[in-house]
Design a binder for these strands. Structure first.
Lengths: 326, 326
DNA sequence: CTGTTAGCGCCTTCAT
DNA sequence: ATGAAGGCGCTAACAG
């Protein structure tokens, strides 16, 4: 900046005013300095600017991999979310600092927020880190979490109404005349627990008892293996609710291997409505989460918190999308 | 830092030395300062630290969306790459600054690298931005691009040998006795052009002329729509090479709708080997790219360039994975 | 072994 | 309308 000031024959503060557009400055001087800056390929150093302004201009997006090392980012749901977050943040002039974290140390989140690398934090998925989130949420305000909302959590959440989503799946399978039901899902993360609960609660009492809960991992390989094993053991449900589309697709593939026709002999309902659900064979019936809207809310909330505004958590409505698998 | 120095009764430089571990310091003083820092929840401000050190501690990962607005990040290949990059960078103490960019302005890349927000840049996919990459590559050194390698590009590349990959697909289909061939792919980005070229070159001359090139977009919906239209028009190839797994899965789905049995009546070969390829119905034969290795190389190269070392581009070998779709 | 000092590149109050 | 000066939070000579 000093160089440019010398070249333009003005002071550094004038250069600053010309390039940021802030403050009051003669229009001609401003134009002249800007032209010179372009000519010499000069740009303001954003890091220094941010240091001076007491901000970083970045929001951290953290993906805790607590329950599933392989899940996040291999699951199209999370990458779609990440893409939308990137777009939303860019639109508002913020950078997106991404971090996958293996929460081995209990203070991974605390370390991150106190390092001052970002102005706020969006955590995608509670995973099994509920305690950590609560602890940090009590003292750190600029944090929003994608996931299940809770009674009175000390942090903001944005998420789909998972209980309602589970109920949608249950009612759909009942309408299809299915009675031998099963739920496939990871029971470690609150989102999935809520889906299971909503599913069970919407069933008539006698079915609730007979419905099988199949604990499963969230990666394609392991959920396929688990489903395959399940069918190999002779289990023959006629209606399955999968806690994610990836699990749902794995179940369909495993069923094919065991000669179980979908949807004739067994209906499968997924969760998320990832883009691939539409081109699966057969196309997957699923409970849709509005990812774009979710990303928008997450960004809205964290920026409002940074601005010191008063905000509260958001709950999004799920929608059942009927396709060929049921 | 000044506060902590006062509390500990030492100077700020002593605090700095204690917390960074650099320089020489009495072990007792170091411990005392550290304990105090913990007690008061003090952490060094990474931004200020980096400003002083003349670095940012971050690498930019840019995804140009030139040819396909919807592609990147909805394609599991790119998100898998992103995940691996995040892991590799984290392991080396770097942050990952992610940016999806719609290259509407010609100087999107120039703006980014000169803003000084990152120490280096990894661009995922050349898209249709070859000219921009070349221009910036001439003056900016710390850039590595995932994609096709070129004669003498002024920037570093890491990528799969797409020509060899195309040839693998061609030979496989020939072995299966397929003769009515088709290639489905976007012909806008160099990676895909190279796959097509490798495919055609490996065919006997008479087949090369009869092979249909079907231009296609890379999102699941649009590639499904295009494939569906293609079959609806009465086309009946018996061997198809898809430029990506997503396209391949779309083709399988579209074929099912038109009563074309895969693999009996038609073999389909994809490209990438995304996790889902294994659980597709039928499981997808594909040309695997080693994403983890690719990410490692990308990070290696950009960090070596930053360190001023002499390095050169890397080309990875593709492998054919035979599964049920062929 | 530790303290003092001079910046990293920028913005902003206070003068003029 | 512009310039001078101080400082954001930190590190690295240079002294002592």
């Amino acid at each position: 900046m000093a160089d440019l000031a010398r070249i333009a024959g003005v002071s550094v503060s004038t250069v600053s005013r010309a390039l940021t557009g802030k403050g009051t400055l003669n229009e001609k001087t401003r134009e002249r300095v800007r032209a010179l800056a372009d000519e010499y390929g000069f740009r303001l150093n954003v890091s220094a600017q941010n240091l001076r302004l007491g901000r970083t201009g970045a929001i951290g997006v953290l993906l805790p991999l607590g329950h599933e090392r392989g899940q996040h980012l291999s699951d199209p749901f999370f990458s779609a979310m990440l893409g939308h977050l990137a777009d939303e943040l860019a639109e508002r002039g913020y950078d997106l600092l991404m971090s996958r974290v293996l929460p081995d140390r209990a203070n991974w989140l605390d370390d991150f927020v106190r390092s001052g690398r970002t102005d706020g934090v969006i955590v995608i998925g509670q995973s099994n880190q509920g305690a950590v989130l609560e602890a940090v949420g009590k003292t750190y305000r600029n944090m929003v979490v994608w996931g299940a909302s809770g009674a009175d959590l000390p942090y903001l959440t944005v998420g789909t109404d998972n209980v309602a989503g589970g109920a949608l799946a249950a009612r759909h399978l009942l309408e299809r005349g299915r009675r031998r039901l099963a739920f496939f899902g990871n029971i470690d993360a609150p989102e999935f627990v809520a889906r299971e609960r909503g599913f069970l609660e919407a069933l008539p009492e006698e079915l609730r008892a007979s419905t099988e809960i199949v604990p499963i991992h969230l990666t394609p390989e392991s959920s396929f293996a688990a489903a395959s094993e399940y069918f190999a053991a002779g289990n023959r449900p006629d209606g399955v609710f999968a806690a994610s589309d990836i699990i749902g697709m794995s179940i369909v593939a495993a069923a094919a291997e065991h000669g179980i026709a979908v949807p004739e002999a067994m209906s499968v309902v997924g969760f998320d409505d990832i883009l691939l659900a539409r081109i699966a064979t057969p196309p997957l019936t699923t409970v849709r989460q509005d990812i774009a809207e979710g990303a928008r809310r997450l960004v809205d909330l964290v920026l409002q918190r940074i601005a010191g505004e008063d905000v509260s958590s958001a709950l999004l409505d799920p929608v059942l999308i009927e396709r060929g698998s049921s």
